[in-house]
């Protein structure tokens, strides 16, 4: 009846991978465990025999600039993501998103790796990472590989990683260049589970009054975190003006799959809030892009 039999505190990624491979029964990687442990306790996750804890692996707890990228270890507690000056400078959307996940106690143990690994299509951290163009680093006994964010998912709540063979090591984010900005917003309801009714991450590249390029990530708008590519294309190369927004929303609604969730939100409300969030999030990202623009001059 215990929800695990063996708990392995891994010292290194190698050690963790070997522990996973050697486990007798079902095994899972655990970091903060704030989702996994409750899923196990409440029967939403099939029982496991072994939990391999990666939170004490030094490499996975690193948060640093590496060449022209920002590396955030998958086991970095969200509190550090929120407080990091580097994240604030290069990934404002992620800082905002991480600050909204759970409460302060949860953010002391919960990690970005867990937020992505749990594979919910509206996970705040994952939506921000997607908008920021992050890539994930994955380790297995045969080596390391990199993958774009959406490749980590096979469906709602289903990670594409092989549970017994692969570990999410961390995330690489492009450093912010001149004229770039990002933002994250979400809408909640005060009743029921504290998962966003709808959330959105936006990244823009700006030159004077024109949007050079944009990335828009939305959840839940499909089985996995959603990129609004048609809307992004519509924005690219155009002067930014409010009159543009209805067409952008239309483009999103053409691609996104908004569903009705009982006791949470109707699909109609999600469609409605999509326009509201787009305006707020895009504005915030746009302003930030200008700020840096000004500063560097």
């Amino acid at each position: 009846m215990t929800i695990w039999q063996h708990y392995h505190l891994a010292k290194s990624i190698e050690d963790a991978l070997q522990a996973l491979a050697a486990a007798q029964g079902p095994a899972r990687v655990i970091a903060g465990g704030t989702d996994l442990l409750l899923d196990l306790e409440q029967g939403r996750h099939s029982p496991v025999d072994t939990l391999v804890d990666v939170s004490a692996i030094p490499e996975m707890a690193e948060l640093e600039q590496r060449a022209d990228e920002l590396f955030i270890g998958a086991a970095v507690p969200l509190r550090r993501v929120v407080q990091s000056e580097l994240v604030g400078r290069h990934a404002a959307a992620l800082q905002e998103a991480a600050g909204l996940i759970g409460g302060p106690q949860v953010r002391n143990t919960a990690t970005l790796g867990g937020n992505v690994g749990h594979a919910l299509p509206a996970a705040d951290g994952a939506i921000a990472l997607l908008a920021l163009g992050a890539e994930a680093e994955i380790a297995s006994l045969s080596g390391r590989r990199r993958a774009p964010m959406q490749a980590l998912y096979s469906g709602p709540g289903r990670s594409a990683l092989s549970h017994k063979e692969e570990i999410l090591v961390g995330f690489y984010l492009p450093l912010r260049a001149e004229g770039e900005g990002s933002a994250f917003r979400r809408v909640m309801r005060p009743q029921g589970v504290a998962i966003a009714i709808l959330n959105m991450g936006v990244w823009v590249q700006r030159r004077q009054e024109t949007i050079q390029a944009a990335r828009i990530a939305i959840g839940p708008a499909g089985p996995i975190p959603f990129r609004a590519r048609a809307a992004e294309q519509l924005l690219a190369g155009r002067p930014y003006e409010t009159a543009l927004l209805p067409r952008v929303v239309e483009a999103i609604l053409g691609e996104a799959r908004f569903r009705t969730s009982p006791h949470r939100s109707s699909a109609d409300y999600r469609r409605h809030m999509c326009g509201v969030l787009l305006e707020d999030t895009l504005n915030a990202a746009w302003e930030r892009a200008a700020l840096q623009h000004e500063m560097s001059r």
Binding site: W4, Y7, G33, L37, L38, D53, R79, Q105, V106, N108
Partner: peptide, 9 residues
């Protein structure tokens, strides 16, 4: 750091 001991192995 404050953590929730009910879900901290």
């Amino acid at each position: 750091e404050p953590v929730l001991s009910c879900t901290y192995p």
